[in-house]
C-alpha cells in the first residue's frame, strides 16, 4: 500500500499543492501576523526537509544551521555587489552550500552514524565561529543588514505580500527537489535505512548515496537560509545558531519521518503551536521536548504516521 502511493508520488503532490496555497493567501488577508507565521512555516518546512532527507538514511543531521548560514550569507554578500536577480541568487543559495558539502560529505559519511551526528553538530558550531571571526566578509557579530530585496522579472520583492509569495515559491521549489531526490533514489535510501551493512554487501556503494543526499540536503538548507534572509532583509549570526538545528529535527520527528508530509505537517503544527503559546516562543523548546518524548515512546510515526494508522483502523472497522 505504502509502496504504491509513494511510487505515484501522492505525498509529494499533496505537499506541493498544500504549499502552493500560500500564493493565494494574500487575496484573503493582509494580517501581518498571518504573513509572519506563514513565512516561518515556509522557512521551517524547507529546513526540516533538509533534515528529513538525511533521516531517510537513518542519519540525524545537526548541520542545517551551518548550510542555512552559507546560503543566507551568500545572498547577503551578493546583495552588496547588487546581484539581486532571483534566479541567480536562488541558484547561488543552493549551489554554494551544496559545493561546500561535497568535500565535507566525502569526509564525514565514511564514518558511522553516531560520528555523523556529532560531527554535524560541531560543524554548525564552526560556521557560527567563522562568522564571528570574519567581520570583513560577514559583518561578524553585527551581521549584514540592509540586504536588498531580490528582483524577479524586474520587480523588487519588497512588500510583505511579495516576500510571502517568494518564500512560498522557495518552499515549493525545495519540496520538488526533495521529493524528486527521495523518490528517484527511494529504493537506495530505503535499503540504507533498513540495513546499511546488508545494502553494502549487496553491492550498493552506500557512502555515495549518503554523500548525494548530504549535498542536496545542504543545498535545500541553503534555500531555507535564503528565504530567512529575504524575509528579514538581514543576515545575522543569531539566525543561524547551532541550537536551532533542534527545532528542525523536532519538526521532522514530530511530523513523522516516514513521508515528506511529515516535515510539512510537523512544521505547520509546531510553528502554529509556538505562536499560540506565549510570546516569543518562550515555551516552545519545552513543548518540543515533551512532544519528542511522546512520539518516541508511543507514536513512532509522528503526526502523519499516527493519523495514517487511525485512518486505516477506522476504515478497517467500517468494513
Amino acid at each position: 500500500m505504502r509502496n504504491r502511493i509513494s511510487l505515484f508520488g501522492w505525498p509529494e503532490l499533496i505537499a506541493v499543492l498544500l504549499l502552493s496555497c500560500g500564493f493565494f493567501v494574500p487575496m484573503f488577508t493582509r494580517s501581518v501576523l498571518i504573513y509572519s507565521v506563514l513565512n516561518q512555516v515556509f522557512i521551517g518546512v524547507v529546513a526540516a526537509q533538509s533534515v528529513w532527507i538525511m533521516l531517510r538514511m537513518n542519519l540525524l543531521s545537526f548541520a542545517t544551521p551551518a548550510f542555512m548560514a552559507l546560503g543566507g550569507y551568500t545572498v547577503a554578500i551578493a546583495g552588496r555587489y547588487e546581484i539581486t536577480n532571483a534566479f541567480v541568487v536562488t541558484a547561488g543559495a543552493f549551489l554554494v552550500p551544496a559545493l561546500v558539502a561535497v568535500p565535507l560529505g566525502a569526509l564525514v559519511l565514511r564514518l558511522r552514524g553516531t560520528y555523523f551526528v556529532l560531527v554535524t553538530f560541531v560543524l554548525s558550531e564552526i560556521v557560527q565561529l567563522l562568522i564571528f571571526e570574519t567581520p570583513s566578509l560577514t559583518g561578524g557579530s553585527d551581521g549584514i543588514s540592509g540586504v536588498p530585496p531580490v528582483t524577479l522579472l524586474g520587480t523588487d520583492m519588497a512588500t510583505n505580500r511579495q516576500v510571502l509569495q517568494f518564500c512560498c515559491g522557495i518552499a515549493v521549489l525545495a519540496t520538488v527537489v526533495t521529493g524528486g531526490l527521495t523518490r528517484y533514489f527511494r529504493q537506495h535510501f530505503a535499503a540504507i535505512e533498513e540495513n546499511e551493512i546488508l545494502a553494502e554487501s549487496l553491492g550498493l556503494v552506500v557512502w555515495r548515496y549518503k554523500a548525494l543526499g548530504f549535498v542536496v540536503a545542504a543545498g535545500i538548507a541553503g534555500l531555507a537560509g535564503f528565504a530567512l534572509v529575504s524575509m528579514l532583509l538581514t543576515a545575522h549570526p543569531s539566525s543561524f545558531a547551532a541550537a536551532i538545528a533542534v527545532d528542525f529535527i523536532a519538526y521532522t520527528i514530530i511530523g513523522g519521518p516516514t513521508s515528506i508530509l511529515g516535515p510539512l505537517f510537523g512544521t505547520g503544527a509546531l510553528v502554529y503551536a509556538t505562536n499560540l503559546f506565549g510570546t516569543h516562543g518562550q515555551y516552545a523548546q519545552g513543548l518540543y521536548g515533551i512532544l519528542i518524548l511522546i512520539v518516541m515512546l508511543v507514536a513512532r510515526g509522528g503526526i502523519v504516521g499516527t493519523v495514517g494508522l487511525l485512518f486505516n483502523r477506522l476504515r478497517g472497522a467500517r468494513r
Binding site: G286, I292, L293
Partner: peptide, 13 residues
C-alpha cells in the same frame, strides 16, 4: 538520541 534530546529541551526550558 531523540529521547535524550527531548529531555535536554525539557530540562533547559
Amino acid at each position: 538520541l531523540m529521547l535524550t534530546l527531548g529531555l535536554y529541551l525539557i530540562l533547559s526550558n
